[in-house]
């Protein structure tokens, strides 16, 4: 099983609902976030194009944060979800340095925090909060090891990209383009 997320940039309007839903769902303290929205514009007026991307931890299959963690607080659980054990984390920040996606931050309580794919919801058969709230339904969550899952079918049908593939982290967040 390999949990992954596909985000349709053709539909995303960059509203940040995914951000606020995550913050409230996961009690993320004000001023911090586990996911965020990037607006990327290119061209010169009036020949322009723009892409919105809801970004977060890529739950990499080859996760540098897990490899560099001195206390094994950063770890991978079933389905490939990368988690941080807050009790084991000493807040050294090595994982923050190693992450090419800048997906981690130091929680005011001293440990590192990041997206969990809402594992507490996924375990109950629900989607992550960001996926369920998205007004444009531009986010899809599922198992890419299952060829019949919606996300696998979408990735077969649509063009997609991942972020910073050259980092060799084998990320699991896909952007439909």
């Amino acid at each position: 099983m390999r949990y992954a997320m596909a985000i349709d940039t053709k539909k995303c309007v960059g509203c940040s609902d995914c951000v606020v839903a995550c913050q409230i769902e996961n009690h993320v303290p004000t001023g911090f976030c586990r996911d965020w929205v990037i607006e990327a514009t290119s061209g010169t007026y009036p020949d322009l194009s723009m892409e919105f991307r809801s970004e977060r931890c890529n739950h990499c299959s080859n996760a540098p944060c897990v490899r560099c963690c001195p206390t094994e607080a950063s770890h991978i659980v079933e389905g490939g979800i990368v988690l941080v054990d807050a009790d084991q984390c000493i807040g050294c920040g090595a994982c923050i340095e190693s992450c090419p996606y800048d997906a981690r931050y130091i929680h005011p309580e001293g440990h590192v925090d990041k997206c969990t794919f809402c594992i507490h919801r996924v375990e109950k058969g629900q989607n992550p909060a960001c996926v369920d709230v998205c007004p444009t339904t531009c986010m899809y969550f599922g198992d890419t090891d299952d060829p019949n899952s919606d996300i696998s079918k979408l990735l077969k049908k649509r063009k997609w990209k991942t972020l910073i593939p050259e980092a060799g982290t084998d990320p699991n967040i896909y952007y439909l383009i």
């Binding site: 053709k10 309007v13 514009t41 444009t136």
Partner: peptide, 30 residues
Amino acid sequence: NGQVQEMSEAIDKGATIITVDPRFSTAASK
């Protein structure tokens, strides 16, 4: 809300969007 949702659905179904705006709005980018 409902209108944003329906625009997204229309994009999925391949509708043509024409946007008139002096600003390159989010909708213009779609």
